[in-house]
Amino acid sequence: MSMILAPSTITYFNKIQAKVAQAMAQFDSATPYFVQDDPVIFNYELIRKAWFQGVPIKTVCQEHKISRSQYYEKEDRFVTYGMVGLFPDFKDLIEAPDLERLVIMVSRARPSLSQQSIFRFAEAVPATKADANIETVAQILASYGRLVSNRPGDIDFWWRIQRTLSELNRLKQKGVKGRDRKKRQQTFFQDADLCHKRLELFREIFLQSSNAVKPVCLRYGLSLTSYYRLVKDYRLFGPWALIPANTPGKDTMSDETELSIVPAIVILKWLFLLPTRTFFPIRVRCIYFLYYFKMFWT
């Protein structure tokens, strides 16, 4: 399940790499961990103080400037879902899965196509017409790094983010058992909470010298190869790199959408992928394309 990300969410992920690099330079560490003003690190540090270090909850709340109700809300999520419960919940800007898939499909087929052209395309498809507007199309493209203004590599970056968010939702549905508020310190670590173990490993190495990498990795059951791969990813994605981003199954559109767009795609290829010097000028091709749009969808 992919998401149409809100502008604030896109801004958040765009800033992570710079914040990670800044913290590594500030603390003179070769291993990333700390991210300034990051909700994941913020939530983990306050939960860790109360659970593992035994700091009174009142003191934790005062130090982090949150209310007790806010603390208990975070603790509830930690107990129920494990480490992934401390990651923020990013919601869909708008739920329009067919429009989202159509926009991405057209963008992949014609990367140079403007968002205005993609909007017109989506507007002509009955199954996506109701949701189609230029702002939503632009936000879908931004959510996948497919805006004309995006940099090289942004498509891979945002595709990884989409996969990570999908896996985060799956892990939250699964949950992690074993933590007990009456035995906070004893049940803080759970073998089933892989994301927590990885974050704690990064925290420990971040606060120690780089010479401690190998023994710490051995203690946490992580190979050096996996560690260095995670370090590379953490530099780009921050703590989100610790969530496995498995490649999901192939997305499928609803039958209605597929039946609506397949004829158009065939016509589009026939009309627009012909050599430009053939007897079909661009304007004539556009007229034919609009004519067949009307014929297939009326």
Rank of each mutant, 00 (worst) to 15 (best):
R146K: 11
V106T: 12
V125A: 01
Q62T: 11
G85F: 06
A122T: 14
F42T: 08
P152D: 10
Q185A: 07
G238W: 09
A6S: 12
F119V: 01
M105S: 13
S226T: 11
S223G: 09
Q53P: 00
Q53C: 12
I118K: 10
K174M: 10
D156C: 06
V137L: 02
P152T: 08
I140H: 01
C61T: 08
R179L: 02
Q115T: 03
I57H: 07
L102R: 11
T257K: 00
F78D: 03
A96H: 03
V55L: 14
A245D: 12
C61E: 01
I10D: 04
K49P: 01
F206W: 01
N211D: 09
R163C: 06
K214P: 00
A130D: 15
K177I: 10
W270T: 11
E75N: 02
Q139N: 11
D76L: 06
E95G: 08
T278D: 13
G178K: 07
W297I: 11
A109E: 12
P32R: 09
S260M: 13
A127K: 02
N14R: 15
S29V: 11
L236E: 15
Y72P: 00
A6P: 15
Y44P: 00
I47M: 11
E256Y: 06
D28L: 12
F87I: 03
L147A: 07
V284F: 13
F202N: 02
V79M: 05
K182Y: 05
S223N: 04
L194W: 04
S226Q: 13
D76Y: 01
V106R: 14
Q139E: 15
L230C: 05
L242N: 04
A192Q: 10
T247E: 15
A21K: 09
Q22S: 13
M295N: 04
C217T: 03
Q162P: 00
S67Y: 02
S29M: 05
V106P: 13
S8K: 12
V262A: 12
N211W: 05
D255S: 12
W51I: 13
Q185F: 05
F90W: 14
V55E: 06
A96N: 10
A192H: 04
L46W: 12
Y288S: 05
I282K: 11
K129E: 15
C286L: 14
L273V: 05
K65G: 01
D255M: 11
P56Q: 12
I66E: 00
I205N: 03
E95Q: 14
R283W: 09
G153Y: 05
I118L: 01
R151Y: 08
D37I: 04
A96L: 03
F206E: 00
E167W: 02
S112Y: 10
L99R: 09
C61M: 07
S223W: 01
K232T: 15
F296L: 08
E73A: 02
K74I: 02
A18C: 05
N150T: 09
R120A: 09
Y44Q: 10
D28Q: 15
I140D: 00
R77P: 00
V213R: 08
L222E: 04
Y72K: 02
R219S: 08
T257N: 01
E204Y: 04
R203V: 02
F206V: 03
A130S: 15
